[in-house]
């Protein structure tokens, strides 16, 4: 799966481990929430780069105290129709002030990038054949944002007041 991070293709240095697979030294490791919680002391004491993968139903509150130690949180979309991860991404960014990578994995489609980017995702496992240019087009497809979210877009109601000239020309 091609990985797009901050709008550019990036090498994926992470390995997702099954719960019973031994972790290899020096390879950045993504583990399930269950494994992370079960082996938390050992994992956080290790020198490994650590990431956790959350499934729908796994609220990021479970990680709240450990986020400083995590370089990556993967939010899994088993199906693009399950929208819980949008809430998780916003909670990670806005409630738990997480600054690491929030990556969308699983059933990730181009027409969701805009929603995902606004909700706080900064990395995307994209379908085969995706290009960085198409990714950027999709994220910019609709410019004005009516509500504040986890990205840096100012909502329309704020722009109206302070920067009316920024309204996109037709």
């Amino acid at each position: 799966m091609p990985l797009i991070k901050h709008g550019r293709f990036a090498a994926d240095l992470w390995t997702v481990y099954a719960d019973d697979a031994p972790l290899q030294p020096d390879i950045p490791a993504v583990v399930s929430l269950a494994r992370f919680l079960a082996q938390r002391a050992a994992l956080t004491a290790s020198a490994l780069d650590l990431g956790v993968r959350l499934e729908p139903g796994e609220h990021p509150q479970a990680l709240a105290e450990a986020l400083d130690r995590l370089a990556l949180v993967q939010l899994h979309f088993p199906s693009f129709t399950d929208g819980r991860a949008y809430s998780y991404a916003r909670l990670l960014r806005q409630r738990y002030r997480y600054r690491g990578e929030v990556r969308a994995v699983g059933h990730v489609l181009r027409d969701q990038y805009l929603f995902m980017a606004r909700a706080g995702f900064d990395a995307f496992e994209t379908p085969p054949g995706e290009t960085a240019q198409k990714w950027r087009q999709a994220v910019r497809a609709v410019g004005p944002a009516y509500q504040p979210a986890a990205d840096d877009r100012r909502p329309v109601w704020a722009e109206r007041r302070t920067h009316p000239e920024r309204a996109p020309s037709q």
């Binding site: 497809a141 609709v142 410019g143 004005p144 109206r160 996109p168």
Partner: peptide, 20 residues
Amino acid sequence: YDAFDAAFVRQRTEQFRDQV
């Protein structure tokens, strides 16, 4: 609509044109 609302709907329409 002001210019922001108009741009929003136009861009959404163009997005759907691309999807079709």
